[in-house]
């Protein structure tokens, strides 16, 4: 499954960059994320409980940030597995200056397997879109708190 999209932040590239590289913030992004730990400069580990249609359960996994070029771009590798199956994703994030704010462009590909694929397939697309939307919203909120801009 391919994921692609963009989001305009009301803040500078440096502010947005600092935001997404903060594990505390990352953990708050997605509901159901627990125990997010930073293993190294670029590696995080944690678990997330997901509910996709009839499929629900916890995944444990990690996120690795690669090819960092602050505050412009990075690549992400995420993988997780749990009772509902597994997922493995790669993505690219780009931050561009636009209209006094920052435009985040993201794109990537996710492989899923097991029950998640067999039973949840139909709802994956919708669920992932709504999760991304929710995540961006949380980022906006934290960003606003930090910068004081509305």
């Amino acid at each position: 499954m391919k994921i692609e999209g963009e989001h305009l932040f009301n803040g500078s590239r440096e502010e947005v960059w600092a935001l997404v590289r903060d594990p505390e913030v990352l953990a708050s992004l997605l509901p159901g994320t627990t125990d997010l730990k930073q293993l190294s400069e670029s590696e995080y580990e944690g678990s997330i409980t997901l509910r996709i249609g009839p499929v629900t359960g916890a995944f444990s996994g990690k996120i690795i940030v690669e090819d960092e070029n602050p505050p412009e771009s990075c690549s992400l590798v995420a993988e997780g597995e749990g009772k509902p199956g597994f997922f493995k994703g790669t993505g690219d994030v780009e931050l561009l200056e636009q209209d006094g704010g920052t435009l985040m462009k993201y794109g990537g590909e996710i492989q899923i397997g097991g029950k998640l694929a067999g039973v949840g397939q139909r709802l994956i697309d919708m669920t992932s879109k709504s999760m991304i939307k929710q995540g961006m919203k949380s980022l906006d909120k934290v960003l606003a708190e930090r910068t004081g801009k509305e």
Partner: peptide, 14 residues
């Protein structure tokens, strides 16, 4: 099936 051999409709809903 997807390219990884994952069955994508393993229920009577799909």
């Amino acid at each position: 099936f997807d390219d990884n051999g994952q069955l994508l409709n393993a229920s009577f809903a799909d």
